[in-house]
Nucleic acid binder design. Sequence first.
DNA 1: TTAAGATAGTCTCATTTGCAACCATCTAAA
DNA 2: TTTAGATGGTTGCAAATGAGACTATCTTAA
Lengths: 157, 157
Amino acid sequence: MAKFDLFQFVPFRLNRLAAEVSAALSDEYQVRYGLDIPEWRVIATLGFRDDACSAQFISQCTRTHKSTISRAVTALLERELIERVENEDDRRAFELRLSAKGHTLYEELIPRLLHKERDILSCLTAQERKDFAAALGKIERSLDLVQTRHGQKAGAY
Amino acid sequence: MAKFDLFQFVPFRLNRLAAEVSAALSDEYQVRYGLDIPEWRVIATLGFRDDACSAQFISQCTRTHKSTISRAVTALLERELIERVENEDDRRAFELRLSAKGHTLYEELIPRLLHKERDILSCLTAQERKDFAAALGKIERSLDLVQTRHGQKAGAY
DNA sequence: TTAAGATAGTCTCATTTGCAACCATCTAAA
DNA sequence: TTTAGATGGTTGCAAATGAGACTATCTTAA
């Protein structure tokens, strides 16, 4: 049998790297703004999209369990960082969007996070960064992790 | 402000990808062998190293909390997949190694996992895979995630 | 020696998380 | 219509996890 090297094993490396990178970022949103990871994901998704979206949508595109998103939404509503309005078309669902307060937080937080990301990737050349991102994209697509250009993941919502 | 795109944000993508890849692999070690992630990490580390090692060592190089490793070790001892002997030189620590049974499991499991890994990376060309692994390595080193060639992370153990 | 501090490992506790049951609502087909 | 099944969201519960206290042991230096 080919000798197995855990430290060359990509799934393991991805896990370890993701954990480490998350820890580096959490200084920004956790310590400074008191957001946990699910809460940050809700903020990030809402801030990214101009129009409102449902909890279900956030759950799907961040690959976070719906109960986790539900709890994050509750917490953010209490802190008045997001707003929730009934959906006319479907009264099971709610439309979520950032409040003014939430938008301010978002605008403050984003540059900090982008800066951290740049830091982390600064060990790569511009070309390497590009190739790395492209490789991530290929793997994501092959695992069906991404939406199509119509903003919908095939068959998912 | 430059528009922020969560789906282009590398930390987020790493998290999502790592979760998805882990889920794909867990079919192998979880469903088939009843191992959870920490248990698999212990097995993998012990199988990878020819000589015995301590729980502390496993904890450090897999970046898993020592209490989590401790629980995994207990469970694996109960299932007799690993063995634990006192360390002559340091009676706080134990030497851990795979049992014969554990080694059999390891030998069975590894090819399956390598196959899954190949599947996941099969969307990349050979060159892209090489570059991707190299980029991971660079980031890991810049985050101080890797051991030196002497098997020790600088200053860590 | 002895004492102070570091380290290996275990255990308890609080937090986080996923699962699954549940309710309300929607959709589709009879 | 009515009914069966799907879907959005919430909640209770149990499992997993990390933090940190704790014991035992080791190391270093006075």
